[in-house]
Design a binder for these strands. Sequence first.
DNA 1: AAAATTGTTGATATTTTTTATCAATATCTA
DNA 2: TAGATATTGATAAAAAATATCAACAATTTT
Lengths: 134, 134
Amino acid sequence: MYDKMLRERELKVTPQRIFILEEIRKMGHAGIEDLHDKVKEVYSSVSLATIYKNIHILVEENILREVPVHGRKSVYEINIGDHVHMCCTKCGEITDIMNIDTRPMILEAERQSGQPYERIAVMLQGVCSKCRNN
Amino acid sequence: MYDKMLRERELKVTPQRIFILEEIRKMGHAGIEDLHDKVKEVYSSVSLATIYKNIHILVEENILREVPVHGRKSVYEINIGDHVHMCCTKCGEITDIMNIDTRPMILEAERQSGQPYERIAVMLQGVCSKCRNN
DNA sequence: AAAATTGTTGATATTTTTTATCAATATCTA
DNA sequence: TAGATATTGATAAAAAATATCAACAATTTT
């Protein structure tokens, strides 16, 4: 699955790398430290540097995307294109909101400024339904 | 000007603090290190810790806002409420886009998820007109 | 206006986070 | 399967952020 993506970019298909990608997909959004912990469960000797190096190269190659978060460290997700994020101001959980079309906002910005935009990152902040009901 | 905002929150009005706020307003968006350099020009002995402490408390008190940026450290701006940011992928400059209404997107998200959102942060990425013409 | 109170500053130490280095090893190519 | 090349893991180094605390400044109280 990720094999092909890596090969296309001439990145070597190592078990650690595959595991990192699969873990991020499972987790949805993962921080460096979370990831390191998860990977260690299987590759107990994995170095933190390996996590950093992989995250960097995978973001550079557009396989992952960085999601910067207010007040804490970035998390990373599989690059599935632009979409809206929500961050709970109480528990901090980050979730995707997939059904909001961001193109109208991009088009409006392009119309106003006369310059094209390649990407848009939207982060909504509020209390999630789980926290709201507790 | 910032005196009142600080007093209302029972923060002491120190020259360093005022200068930091005025400098951020002038610069539009400032990173910690930029700020430290600017403040040092006038208060040559200002400690980096003072910059950090002020940024933190001023963000907490909603006088400043953090603007997280992909691939680098956050910058900070005077809190003028939600608005769209643009970051040039070539020169890195961050600018405000003031005339895009973010409420429709918030309303749509609220309609879909049935939960309220207090804030929205939008970051557009593209090559700015200055870079485009060079 | 001086004294008391309280918060802030600056200096520095410490911690945390990230990057660099490099030999050993694993992946891939031919 | 051998050779070329990239990746890993260990660790050192650098960079970024936070904690500590005495001296000081802003504000409040008297």
